[in-house]
């Protein structure tokens, strides 16, 4: 089931009919004021973008919906600045990331994570979780939500939105090396969080028994 879900998620990006116009072509027409081309563009990206923001906000659907709408509105307001020679998806996700960051800054909704990147790197590798942990959606959501913002963005863009490293670098406006380092640190931190969860879970089960 996990495998199916993952396959579904990782391949849930837009599937284009070869004869259908590309995102860039649609965006160019929207730039010229063709309202009718807005619908296919939004239909293509609404669901993946909502998914991204849903996970980025720690599973808060109403908030994710608001941020999704704000992302599209902001994209539309700055559509003239979009260069159609470049891919549309990273441009849209860069706006989404900024919208989410603005929200977190305003609302101070992010939970503080005390460990710095250097401290994380100095930690010993956790045990292999595959054999020792039973993880479910809510716990995973909690663990991802507890990641530092930059690592969380990197993990979500890479493993849920299926962006390449180059596309991520464009979305986050950072070099590819920094993207890799954020991904690595994010995964490491995630393993630590899941391990802690597993320990708590096992202790609670033992206490109940």
């Amino acid at each position: 089931m996990v495998a199916d879900t993952f396959t579904m998620n990782i391949r849930s990006g837009p599937r284009h009919d070869l004869s259908a116009p590309t995102d860039a072509q649609l965006a160019r027409r929207v730039q010229r004021g063709h309202t009718s081309d807005l619908a296919p563009l939004v239909e293509r990206h609404h669901s993946p973008l909502l998914g991204f923001l849903y996970r980025l906000t720690g599973g808060d659907r109403p908030l994710a919906e608001d941020l999704t709408q704000e992302t599209f509105l902001r994209a539309l307001r700055s559509i003239q600045q979009y260069q159609t020679s470049r891919p549309f998806k990273p441009w849209l996700y860069a706006i989404a990331v900024n919208v989410a960051r603005d929200h977190f800054k305003r609302a101070e909704t992010r939970h503080a994570v005390t460990l710095t990147d250097d401290e994380l790197l100095a930690l010993p590798d956790p045990i292999d979780l595959e054999e020792t942990i039973e993880i479910d959606g809510p716990r995973l959501a909690l663990a991802i939500s507890a990641l530092p913002g930059q690592q969380r963005e990197a993990i979500l863009l890479r493993y849920y939105q299926d962006l390449s490293l180059a596309e991520m670098a464009s979305v986050l406006s950072i070099p590819i090396g920094t993207v890799k380092s954020r991904l690595s640190l994010g995964l490491r931190q995630l393993r630590l969080s899941l391990k802690d969860e597993a320990v708590c879970h096992t202790s609670m089960n033992s206490a109940r028994n």
Partner: peptide, 25 residues
């Protein structure tokens, strides 16, 4: 890292309905 990564799929995201997408459009 692989074992941790495989658990990422355990967190499904909501899918907007056609009506919600229409409203957004």
């Amino acid at each position: 890292l692989l074992p941790a990564l495989r658990h990422l799929a355990d967190w499904p995201a909501p899918t907007p309905t056609a009506l919600e997408t229409d409203r957004l459009v």
